[in-house]
């Protein structure tokens, strides 16, 4: 196990400097929108919170972290001598392969497609799309979280943004529940699949849907994506432990103990695979962790996009 204190201070420092936990300028991470046509004006602001975009980098980092966990090198994290090469700044940005980056950026592209097909009035502005700060909150650095959240909010307020369309559970939870509580600002927050309105006929298909903890429990909205798939003729096979009792993929343990994270994902994969149907995720962290565990996982957005 890494010393939580070291990890937290490192991440807090990164957020302070660059607005995201990785210490690389957000511009470097957030490039997915560059080559596709996106409206700059509209009703709801598409707010990715930079989660999908970050996953290729996190993955790379944690493979390193995993290698050094339980070795003496763990202790060097705090000195920023050894690990910082890839945990901080540009070094980090260079780690991820473009193949990985394309994969996750592709999911965001699918989300855009799906929203367009559903005739949702939305727009995108990279300068307003910021990291939510959720990791700081989760790790317990509530002061850092509040500070960061306030800066995110002030940018949105400056532009008069009222409606937000989110794409992942963590950002959704932050904006919907935590921001009102800790910054006093409330937005109308909807997840993209709540806005999907599509029909299809691929009636034979069955999938195994992995409910993320936050959608399943904190927000109790597991039935929404199910309904979306149902309308497309896709059946979600019952999974042992789902909905409010869904099991964690283990992703959140990554920053402190990649080893523990691995243990948990193995357990969850066993449950998911026992259905026999292909696995579908709707959170980039679940996606990455389940993939690392050795299963092929499709993102909800690409599935919807293909079947509609």
């Amino acid at each position: 196990m890494y010393k939580p204190k070291d990890i937290i201070e490192l991440i807090a420092d990164n957020v302070k400097k660059t607005g995201n936990p990785f210490g690389a300028p957000s511009k470097v991470i957030n490039g997915w929108w560059k080559n596709i046509p996106l409206p700059r004006e509209g009703d709801g602001l598409l707010f990715t919170g930079l989660m999908y975009q970050s996953v290729p980098f996190i993955e790379k980092t944690t493979t390193y972290l995993e290698r050094y966990e339980d070795t003496a090198l763990v202790n060097y994290v705090k000195y920023g001598r050894f690990v910082p090469k890839f945990l901080v700044g540009w070094g980090f940005a260079l780690l991820a392969s473009s193949e990985e980056k394309n994969k996750f950026n592709g999911m965001l592209h699918s989300i855009v497609e799906v929203l367009k097909k559903s005739k949702v009035d939305f727009y995108y502005r990279p300068e307003l799309d910021n990291y939510s700060g959720i990791l700081l909150y989760d790790l317990g650095d509530v002061d850092g979280f509040i500070k960061h959240a306030r800066s995110v909010v002030s940018k949105l307020k400056e532009k008069g943004v009222k409606k937000l369309i989110t794409v992942d559970p963590h950002t959704t939870y932050a904006l919907k529940i935590l921001y009102p509580k800790y910054t006093g600002e409330t937005f109308e927050v909807k997840t993209y699949f709540e806005l999907v309105n599509l029909n299809g006929s691929n009636g034979t298909k069955q999938v195994t849907l992995h409910d993320p903890c936050i959608y399943g429990r904190y927000l109790e909205m597991s039935d929404v994506p199910k309904k979306v798939l149902e309308n497309l003729g896709i059946e979600c096979v019952a999974v042992r432990n789902s909905g409010p009792f869904t099991n964690c993929c283990g992703g959140p343990a990554e920053s402190v103990s990649p080893k523990l994270s691995r243990e948990l994902v193995d357990r969850r994969i066993e449950e998911l695979q026992s259905t026999g149907a292909p696995v579908v995720a709707m959170c980039p962290i679940c996606m990455a962790n389940l993939t690392k565990g050795g299963v092929e996982v499709e993102d909800l957005s690409t599935l919807i996009n293909h079947c509609s």
């Binding site: 196990m1 903890c213 429990r217 904190y218 964690c248 959140p252 343990a253 948990l264």
Partner: peptide, 11 residues
Amino acid sequence: DELWRCLHCGL
């Protein structure tokens, strides 16, 4: 340190 084992999964 034990506190940081929690996944915040909410179960």
